[in-house]
Amino acid sequence: MFDRYGPPEVLRVAELPDPVPGPGEARVRVRAAGVQPFDVGVREGWMRPGPGHFPHQVGQEFSGVVDLLGEGVTGPVPGTAVLGSTMMNGQATHVVVPAANLVVKPPQLSFPAAAALVAAGQTASGALAQLEVTAGDVLLVHGAAGSVGTLAVQLARLAGATVVGTAGPANHDYLRELGAVPVAYGDGLVEAVRAVAPGPVTVALDAAGRGAVAASVALGVPRERIGTIADDKDAAEFGTPVVRAPRSPVRLAEVIALAARGVLTMPLRAYPLAQVAAAHAAVQAGHGRGKVVLIVEPEQP
């Protein structure tokens, strides 16, 4: 939790009473929790709406085991491994959420692997649906090596689209493994994309910011098909949509099922809960591959 806005060092681990589920709710003993850029924005104070009071918790995604049900709830029964979304309290040992929003964790996925897919899975699948990415599209994914980009590349390829992904040179082989044509971000991006794309770019997803919307416009992508999750300011300037896919347990379950079959992959960078500040710093630094997760309770061998 944190007592004031600021850098990762404002975070601390604190002892709080275990939450109690109300009617329609379930309590989950958290085993792993995801860390995402939204958490960084909340902690620094520029993501709105932020906390209305301090101290405050943080975290939006988790996996764990149901250990207590509220009134009127019949399942998932205690002992069931689950995953799901919450709001600004997921990086904790216990979380209370509406039972209907939980997704059962397949045994093929570890708790960290499941937590890593919660936000990125819903964001990537929802963004591609909103942008109507289909077979025959040439999709440009800005920030393709990050968690949302990693899943967007794979889901778009499953839909039959050709994908060009931006990343630093160290991640180009990784993007090739995912099925994307890699290109370095930065100066000369527009020309670089034109040089490697098999045809005109028809749709773009910005998961990076830093001029990605402007570059997509310069490439001639129709503005209604340039979606950003990272740059509201440029979206307003260029008249392109901000894609804020609503949370959907149904859509999340579809992504989880693909991951359980081995169709989707997500590299993990794991930190123990006690190193939450370091985990936030890793997300804030950017340029990383895959997803940062906190190990709240290590899995037994």
Rank of each mutant, 00 (worst) to 15 (best):
G211H: 12
S216F: 01
H142A: 06
E25P: 00
R223W: 08
R244S: 15
H287T: 15
L140V: 02
E224Y: 04
G188D: 12
F238D: 05
A235F: 04
G136K: 12
V193N: 06
Q122H: 07
A135M: 14
P23S: 12
V82W: 03
V13I: 11
A145W: 06
L205E: 02
G64T: 03
A145D: 03
L268W: 01
V13Y: 03
H53P: 00
P272K: 02
E132G: 10
Y5C: 08
S85K: 15
Q130S: 08
K291C: 08
L11G: 07
V10R: 05
P298N: 08
Y185P: 01
T74H: 13
G64W: 00
R31D: 10
L252T: 06
G24L: 06
A215D: 14
S63H: 01
G22L: 11
K105V: 04
V292K: 10
Q108A: 13
V65A: 05
G75K: 05
S63M: 01
D39H: 07
S216P: 05
V10F: 03
S248Y: 00
Q154L: 06
D206F: 02
V97C: 10
V30K: 04
K291V: 13
M88H: 14
D137Y: 01
D18I: 07
Q154H: 11
A135E: 15
V181S: 01
V221Q: 04
M87C: 10
A184H: 03
A278D: 15
V181T: 08
V292W: 08
A127R: 00
A208K: 09
L117P: 04
G79A: 06
L140N: 02
M88W: 13
P19D: 15
Q60T: 13
L189C: 07
V190L: 10
G121M: 00
P7S: 06
D18T: 11
V255F: 03
R194Y: 03
P49G: 10
V73M: 14
R48Q: 12
V181M: 05
L128Y: 03
V103M: 05
P37D: 09
E15L: 11
V217S: 08
G84H: 02
L268C: 07
Q108W: 02
E177C: 03
A253K: 02
G286F: 14
A92N: 07
A115P: 03
V95F: 06
H172V: 13
G24V: 01
A204G: 09
I229K: 06
D232K: 12
P76Y: 08
A245R: 00
V193E: 12
V97T: 05
G52A: 13
T123F: 00
S85C: 13
A113W: 00
P249L: 02
P301M: 06
V293N: 11
G290I: 07
H280Q: 15
P21G: 08
P55V: 10
T134D: 09
A99S: 11
T93Q: 15
A159L: 14
S147Q: 09
A285L: 15
Q60G: 12
Y174H: 12
T150Y: 14
I226S: 12
K291Q: 13
V196E: 02
A285G: 10
D18A: 15
A156L: 11
M1L: 10
A195S: 15
G286K: 13
V104S: 12
V213H: 06
G149P: 09
D187H: 05
